[in-house]
Amino acid sequence: MAWRTIDRTKVSPEEMGPGLSAAVREKIQAFFPRYPTKQAALIPALHIIQDALGYISLQAMEDVAELLELHPSQVMDVVSFYSMFWTHPRGKKTIMLCRSLSCELMGGKNVRDALVEKLGIKEHETTDDGEWSFMTEECLAACEHAPCMLINEKLHKCVRVEDLNRILSDPDNDKLEMPRSDLFDAPRTAQT
């Protein structure tokens, strides 16, 4: 062929990544009674998978497709549409920084630059020690606290560049301070 073509017809077992454990399947199945179709449980299922594995592997997509009686491509379609889902492994903690106008006006860009420099990674990358991943999001709907960012589940408000060291070194910087529902687990990295 005259130019390079990506071969999508084959995939290696390494590329497939980890699959779903029995516990995860059970958690997903608990959502079935809520909806008249199994497919409707897909987005909750993807949250559960991402909480468990840290990301949504190809194998996980195949497994969940089987569970929900879909074609794996339909799962891939949905995963790729929503910006919160990662298709490659993440670090233990993911920083989701708001980049929308309110946050930008209040210094969000400086926070972003400082974070990128501190972590040494670009968007959608993970630090070498597997600790941090970084992404930006269009708006976290916390504009009165601009600039703001989520670390896993916890929202950090009015973040200033000089606060970053304190925030990043706090061991509880990703923990919710409230009773949580057991429908979704706190995120953890994939067990390898």
């Binding site: 949250h47 929503y82 919160m84 989701m96 999001e137 976290l140 709907a141 989520l150 589940e153 916890k154 929202l155 919710l176 409230m178 009773p179 949580r180 529902s181 429908l183 979704f184």
Partner: peptide
């Protein structure tokens, strides 16, 4: 509820 609302999810669910 949008996915970024995490605290709010737990509050609403409770």
């Amino acid at each position: 509820m949008r996915g970024e609302f995490i605290e709010q999810f737990h509050i609403m669910q409770k």
